[in-house]
C-alpha cells in the first residue's frame, strides 16, 4: 500500500512537471521497464486529462450587471499603506522601549554592588525598593503621559478619518 502510494505520488509529480530532472529520468526508465508503473501511469494520465477537461460553472447571465450596479454605490478604499502611519507605530514603540529601559536602569541603580561576598544576586534583587518607585506621584505622572499619548493617537485617527471622508466626498 505504501509502495503503491509512493508510486502514485512520484507519478503525479512527473505528470505535473514538478519532478526534478534526475527523478524524471528515473521515472522514464521505470515506465519503460516496469509494467506496473506503466499501467499506473496510464491510469493517472487518464484522470489528469479528465480533470483538465472539466468545464467551469457559470453564474446567472445578470451576474456582471449585478456586480456593476452594486459597485456604483461604493468607493475604492485608499491603499492600506496610505493610512497606516509609521510615525505612530514608531512613537508607540519608542515610548514602551523607553519605559522598559527606564525601569531596568532604575532597578539596577537600586542594587548595592559592593556588599559582602556571600550576598547572592537574588538577595540583591530583593533589596530593590519597589514601594519607593511606585509612589503616587510617579504613577500619576505615568498615567498622565499615557492619557496624553492616547489623546494624540485618537486625534491622528480622527484626522485620517476626516481626510478619507473629504476624499470620498
Amino acid at each position: 500500500m505504501n509502495t503503491q502510494h509512493n508510486m502514485e505520488e512520484r507519478l503525479w509529480e512527473y505528470i505535473d512537471g514538478t519532478a526534478a530532472p534526475a527523478e524524471r529520468q528515473v521515472i522514464e526508465e521505470l515506465l519503460q521497464t516496469q509494467s506496473e508503473w506503466k499501467e499506473k501511469y496510464g491510469e493517472l494520465l487518464e484522470m489528469n486529462t479528465m480533470l483538465h477537461s472539466t468545464e467551469l460553472d457559470a453564474p446567472s447571465l445578470r451576474f456582471t450587471k449585478n456586480v456593476m450596479e452594486e459597485i456604483t454605490r461604493i468607493h475604492i478604499a485608499p491603499a492600506t499603506k496610505t493610512y497606516i502611519n509609521n510615525k505612530i507605530i514608531w512613537g508607540i514603540s519608542t515610548f514602551f522601549i523607553t519605559m522598559i529601559v527606564a525601569f531596568v536602569v532604575y532597578g539596577f541603580s537600586q542594587m548595592e554592588w559592593n556588599t559582602s561576598a556571600n550576598s547572592t544576586f537574588s538577595d540583591q534583587l530583593e533589596k530593590i525598593d519597589i514601594a519607593k518607585f511606585f509612589n503616587n506621584t510617579l504613577i500619576n505622572v505615568f498615567m498622565m503621559i499615557n492619557v496624553v499619548l492616547g489623546l494624540i493617537l485618537f486625534d491622528f485617527y480622527l484626522g485620517n478619518k476626516r481626510k478619507q471622508f473629504r476624499k470620498e466626498a
Binding site: 453564474p59 451576474f63 456586480v67 452594486e70 461604493i74 475604492i76
Partner: peptide, 19 residues
C-alpha cells in the same frame, strides 16, 4: 449562495483594489 458569495468577492475586490 455561491452566486451571492461570488458577487460579494467582486465587490470586495473592487473596494480594496488599491491594495
Amino acid at each position: 449562495e455561491a452566486e451571492e458569495v461570488a458577487q460579494d468577492v467582486f465587490i470586495k475586490a473592487y473596494k480594496y483594489l488599491a491594495d
